[in-house]
């Protein structure tokens, strides 16, 4: 995982551990999951099911569906979720579709 993210957190607060693609990330508790993953250096959230092209958050408001991730076997929009202790998340397994 690259750590030199261009996305910087301008404040600091309590952090919790989540699992992303089998690796442990320390993310700000209660923060927006998509924002926290970007700041943690995650560059690719999913691959477009048509072309396989890499995608990452685009709109941050639940409209574009480019930040889809998998949580508990369900494909969800990362920008509509908050970080909590112990989340186990990954890139969507079924070709990235919703």
């Amino acid at each position: 995982m690259k750590t030199a993210s261009p996305f910087l957190e301008i404040e600091s607060g309590p952090r919790v551990d989540v699992t992303w693609e089998g690796k442990t990330l320390s993310l700000p508790e209660g923060s927006n999951l998509a924002a926290a993953l970007l700041a943690a250096g995650v560059e690719v959230f999913r691959h477009n099911p048509v072309s396989g092209a890499p995608r990452a958050p685009f709109c941050m408001m639940g409209a574009c569906f480019d930040c889809l991730i998998e949580l508990d076997g369900v494909t969800r929009q990362a920008c509509m979720l908050e970080v909590s202790e112990g989340l186990v998340i990954s890139r969507p397994s079924e070709q990235g579709g919703a």
Binding site: L8, I10, A35, C59
Partner: peptide, 16 residues
């Protein structure tokens, strides 16, 4: 990203 997304990152998460 959209500029709106950039603003949301800053507003909600303090991420720039």
């Amino acid at each position: 990203m959209t500029a709106g997304a950039g603003q949301i990152l800053l507003k909600q998460s303090g991420v720039v």
